[in-house]
């Protein structure tokens, strides 16, 4: 069953904001506390919010299991791909080939205390995004699966 209209409206309103906050945590993983897992968990909690506010049948229409699975696999492939790219460059697996290279995210960072710049840290932000997407899909789909377990029991 769905929860009351107030909770549903609240969930609708809050969903994009938790989402963008989670993305912020993911994106600023190399500057502030946070990173892929934490941000991914925040985003997954946004999905959990929608899941709890609506009934399972409605949620099944909004958050597709297939899309979540795809998100998870794509995140992992992106993550491992960032490692494999180092192999292509000619360095060992997981070598941070973008750091200090001047390319994307490749700005060097000034040593010492400073607030930092988003455009640093090489492959770390890419991996953060990959892990964030993966954790998003993974944790959301765990909740969906467990709820489907309850539903099946009743039918």
């Amino acid at each position: 069953m769905r929860m009351s209209k107030i909770v549903r409206t609240g969930a609708n309103l809050l969903y994009p904001f938790i989402l963008i906050f989670g993305l912020y945590v993911i994106m600023h993983g190399h500057l502030t506390p946070g990173g892929g897992f934490q941000g991914g968990a925040v985003v997954a909690t946004a999905a959990a919010l929608v899941i709890v506010a609506y009934s399972y049948d409605e949620v099944a229409g909004m958050l597709k299991k297939t899309a979540m699975k795809a998100r998870e696999s794509i995140g992992l492939l992106l993550f491992i791909g960032a490692g494999i790219a180092a192999l292509v460059v000619g360095a060992p697996f997981f070598y941070n080939f973008l750091a200090n290279s001047g390319l994307l995210f490749g700005m060097p960072v000034i040593p010492g205390p400073n607030p930092g710049d988003l455009n640093t840290a090489g492959v770390i932000p890419i991996m953060n995004i990959a892990v964030g997407i993966e954790v998003w899909g993974g944790l959301a789909i765990i909740l969906l699966y467990m709820l489907s377990g309850i539903r099946k029991e009743e039918s």
């Binding site: 500057l31 502030t32 506390p33 897992f37 010492g112 205390p113 400073n114 607030p115 930092g116 954790v135 944790l139």
Partner: peptide, 29 residues
């Protein structure tokens, strides 16, 4: 905390256990 935002770098807590614990938390869930 081992984050260079506005801090003297002399006395930071050790970062490795934090990295290990992150891994361990996700394994826990």
């Amino acid at each position: 905390a081992p984050i260079y935002t506005n801090a003297p770098s002399s006395a930071m807590v050790l970062p490795t256990p934090q990295a290990l614990t992150l891994t361990s938390i996700v394994i826990g869930v």
